[in-house]
């Protein structure tokens, strides 16, 4: 149950609120997850609305796309610098209403493994910027450390920005029961001019995972197969996921241009 609501004007004010031990105080961006805690008396939280903190902007700096943590998914999808595959994955994530509300930061905090957007974003190896923390953090590290305690994972911390390198070629493939259903298997690839290649997988588990990060794409199909060798749940067998992830990886890296066009 949400017991307190704040709308601070500065990051400092927000940070001080979030740093409180009691009650649990969480940043509120779009509200698509937190607002639904309203009727649950077992969870007493305070929320800090981020809408006045200047975190709603996207800009380009030194070849990086700097995405404010409170930028909405639709804002990012519509932005001219957003890679087509990333925009496509956003449209696969949720319908327009939720895209107009949900923030990029909030999505990273609350996503599970079936998120097309986070799977695709993870391929770009973005870095997360936290208020008053010197070091940035990779999204991969954050998701790995986040575990299943999604809302608790930001306790005392305030994500302010997501930084994405823009010089990679990004692609996305997915298999689902229907075109806009949550994916059973999805895969995204990023390739930089240097040859560096990353492959991420989604459609299963607590968070999307990194299957490959190497100087070139060789072995991507095998990496995908291995990464999902135990990816079993009630939605699909591990055998199917493993084989399909491998197939998607092959497609992403073997016919890159065609795939990019198809998005």
């Amino acid at each position: 149950m949400i017991v307190e609501y704040y709308r601070p004007e500065t990051l400092k004010q927000a940070s001080e609120l979030i740093a409180r031990a009691e009650p649990l105080t969480l940043p509120l961006a779009g509200g698509t997850t937190l607002s639904r805690q309203g009727q649950n008396p077992a969870v007493q939280v305070a929320v800090v609305d981020m809408q006045r903190l200047g975190l709603n902007e996207i800009r380009k700096e030194n070849g990086l796309l700097m995405i404010g943590a409170a930028v909405t998914l639709q804002h990012l999808a519509d932005h001219e610098l957003t890679p087509a595959a990333l925009a496509h994955s956003i449209r696969q994530e949720v319908g327009l209403n939720a895209r107009n509300q949900a923030s990029v930061g909030g999505m990273l905090v609350s996503c599970d493994g079936r998120s097309p957007f986070v799977t695709t974003l993870l391929a770009l190896d973005p870095r997360l910027v936290w208020y008053n923390e010197e070091e940035t953090q990779t999204l991969g590290d954050y998701l790995a450390l986040r575990g299943k305690a999604r809302l608790d994972s930001t306790r005392g911390r305030l994500m302010t920005e997501i930084r994405v390198l823009l010089n990679a070629k990004l692609r996305y493939e997915a298999v689902a029961r229907s075109p806009l259903d949550r994916p059973i298997v999805c895969a995204a690839s990023a390739q930089w001019p240097s040859g560096r290649s990353r492959l991420t997988l989604g459609g299963w588990g607590n968070a999307p995972i990194l299957a490959l990060d190497g100087p070139e794409a060789g072995g991507a199909a095998a990496a995908a197969r291995n990464a999902y060798i135990h990816a079993e749940d009630t939605w699909a067998s591990a055998e199917y996921r493993s084989a399909t992830a491998s197939r998607l990886a092959q497609r992403l890296f073997s016919n890159a241009e065609a795939q990019e066009e198809s998005l």
Partner: peptide
């Protein structure tokens, strides 16, 4: 937007 998924205060 979905009015069920945001606070009135927002």
């Amino acid at each position: 937007v979905n009015s069920c998924s945001m606070l009135a205060a927002q």
